[in-house]
Amino acid sequence: MKIYNKLVRDKIPQIIEGDGKKCDIRIASKGEQAELLENKLQEEVNEFIEDKNIEELADIMEVLFGLAKNLGFSEKELIKKRDEKKDERGGFEEGIVLKKVLD
């Protein structure tokens, strides 16, 4: 038996049971979900830093959507805000490094 005590995607219990195993789950309160999502974000960022693949980036995105929902925002609102900020301040495509600002 392996103990996890961490937030997992919604279909993980069915996937585990589909593999012929049993699992013990509980539903976190909304307040607890915020902390669990923050922990999950750190976990997924660490996995991306180690593996550097699109699957880990997708996992980070899913956690961000979960955090937005927990704060009362939709995926659409999060993407809209991202687009607004990109239009106003740009993205990170050019690799610009700010060395200093002179007075």
Rank of each mutant, 00 (worst) to 15 (best):
K100R: 10
K6L: 11
N39F: 02
L37N: 04
E75I: 03
V97F: 14
G91A: 15
C23Q: 06
D87N: 10
E94C: 06
E84F: 14
I27A: 05
V63F: 02
E32A: 05
L41D: 02
L67W: 03
D19I: 00
L98K: 08
G95F: 12
E88A: 13
G90Y: 05
L57R: 04
P13F: 03
N46L: 00
K99M: 12
D87L: 06
N46I: 01
E75A: 03
R89I: 06
A34T: 12
Q33L: 15
E88R: 13
G91V: 13
I96T: 13
R89W: 08
L37H: 01
S29T: 15
I49V: 13
R9V: 04
K30G: 08
V63W: 00
E44A: 06
G31Y: 06
D103W: 07
E62Q: 14
F65G: 00
D103Q: 11
D87Q: 12
F92G: 13
I3M: 14
L67S: 04
D83N: 14
N46F: 01
G91T: 15
L78T: 00
K30W: 04
E44N: 04
Q33D: 07
A58Q: 11
D24L: 14
I60R: 00
E35I: 08
G20C: 11
L71N: 09
K85Y: 11
D87S: 10
G72A: 05
L64C: 15
R9S: 02
M61L: 15
M1Q: 03
K80M: 06
K40M: 01
I49T: 07
R9Q: 09
K69C: 05
K21H: 09
K30S: 12
K21S: 02
E50F: 08
A68E: 00
N5Y: 13
K81I: 10
I60D: 05
N5R: 14
F73W: 07
N46T: 04
K6Y: 10
K100V: 04
L67M: 15
I15L: 08
A34C: 09
R89N: 09
G91H: 15
F92E: 11
F65Y: 15
E77A: 12
N5E: 15
I3H: 15
N46Y: 01
V101I: 13
E32W: 00
Q42N: 10
K76D: 03
F73T: 01
N5I: 07
G18V: 02
E35F: 06
K52M: 11
V97Y: 14
D24H: 12
A28G: 08
G31V: 06
V97L: 15
Q14L: 10
A28L: 14
K99I: 13
E17I: 01
E77N: 07
N53M: 03
G72E: 01
G20D: 10
E32V: 03
K21V: 05
K21F: 08
L41S: 04
G18W: 05
K11L: 11
E75P: 02
L98V: 11
E38F: 09
M1I: 01
E43H: 07
D87F: 03
G66K: 03
E50S: 11
Q33E: 14
R26H: 08
N53I: 00
F92I: 11
G72T: 03
E44G: 01
F48C: 05
